[in-house]
Structure formats: C-alpha cells, structure tokens
C-alpha cells in the first residue's frame, strides 16, 4: 500500500485491474507441470549410466534434429497466429495455426519413427534396462503433452475453419498458446538431458 493512497478514497474511475483468470490459471498449471517434469528429468539424470545391461544411449540414440527444429519453430508460428487473431485477421490465424499443427505432427512422426527403430531394431523397450525405463517415460510424458496440445489446437483449427472461432476468443487462444510454448520449452530441457548430457 503506497503512502499516497492512504486515507484517500479510492477514486471511482480509477481502474481496478486484475490479471486474467485464464492466464493465471494456466501459469499455475504450468508451475505444477514443471514440478512433474522435474521429477522425471531428475530420475533420468540420476540413472544415466546406471543400467546393468545394454543398449546404452550412445549405441542407439540418434539426435532428432528435424523434429526439434520443427517443434521449436512451431512456437514462432503459434505466436504469429496469436498475433493474427488479436488483430482479427482470421485467415492468417487459421494458416499459422495449421502450420503449427503440421510442425507438431512432424515432430510426433519423428518420435514414432525413432521409437519404432529403437523397439524393433535395437530391442530397447521400457523393460530392457534403466535407460529404456527412464527414456520412454520422460520422452513419452512429453509426447503426451504434445498430443494433448495438438488435440486442443486441432479443435480450434476445425472451429476456425467452420468460422465458429471468432476473434473475440483471442484471449482463450492465448491461454492455449501459453501451454504450447510451455511444451516447447520442456522439449528444450528434455532434449538437452536425453540427447546431449545423457548420450
């Protein structure tokens, strides 16, 4: 409470501004999710090199450069679509949104190919060793979040294409975009831990 306001009436016209509940709620959720990921990341780091049997990350992991580039650039495309809907440019909005989804799908496809190779070719499953357990859990947890994000974005895209997602919903879209940014940031951490430190 500032000294200036003490003892004075709150001027009626003085704006009483509070943060939007959607953003506060999403930020809170992100804090909670971060704690969830932290635990999985810590477990991954703790178990690096502790597997009793092979295969080791160095033997079987390939760095998913394409997927990573796609996912990270989708943060840019979703930011463009946020910008577009704020300014009421609905076609640009739908376009950038579709691009975001496409990039996300490419990322997921990359993960699917990687997992297929690991399971079929290298015989690494979640039961094989500690590396398998921690790897599939951590990357899988992230992938679950990507899929969740993609589903939400797809619903929005379908509504937008049907002209049912007006510009007045931009605030809600911003909340979804916030989630998507979070998913991207988590990937930076997961990528660093799994493919850089852990390899």
């Amino acid at each position: 409470m500032s000294t200036a306001s003490r003892g004075m009436d709150l001027p009626a016209e003085q704006a009483w501004k509070l943060p939007s509940r959607g953003r506060v709620g999403m930020l809170s959720l992100i804090i909670g999710e971060s704690a969830l990921f932290t635990i999985f990341v810590v477990a991954y780091i703790f178990y690096i090199g502790k597997s009793l049997t092979g295969p080791t990350p160095a033997q079987v992991l390939e760095v998913p450069i394409l997927g990573t580039i796609c996912l990270l650039s989708s943060s840019f495309t979703i930011w463009r679509s946020e910008h577009a809907i704020e300014h009421g440019r609905m076609r640009a909005f739908a376009g950038w949104l579709a691009a975001t989804i496409l990039l996300g799908v490419i990322f997921m496809a990359g993960t699917a190919i990687e997992w297929h190779k690991l399971i079929v070719q290298d015989g690494l499953t979640i039961r094989t060793n500690l590396f398998g357990t921690t790897f599939y859990s951590l990357v899988g947890l992230h992938a679950t979040h990507v899929i969740l994000g993609l589903s939400m974005l797809s619903v929005v895209l379908v509504l937008a294409l049907l002209d049912r997602f007006p510009a007045s919903q931009s605030e809600r879209f911003a909340v979804i975009a916030l989630y998507w940014h979070f998913v991207d940031v988590v990937w930076v951490v997961v990528f660093t831990v799994v493919y850089v430190i852990g390899r």
């Binding site: 939007s20 509940r21 007045s168 605030e171 809600r172």
Partner: peptide, 9 residues
C-alpha cells in the same frame, strides 16, 4: 480476456 470476461459474474 475480453471485457465481459473480466467479471464473469
């Protein structure tokens, strides 16, 4: 949020 969202009730 839009203005009508600011005070939902």
């Amino acid at each position: 949020m839009s203005s009508e969202e600011k005070n939902p009730h």
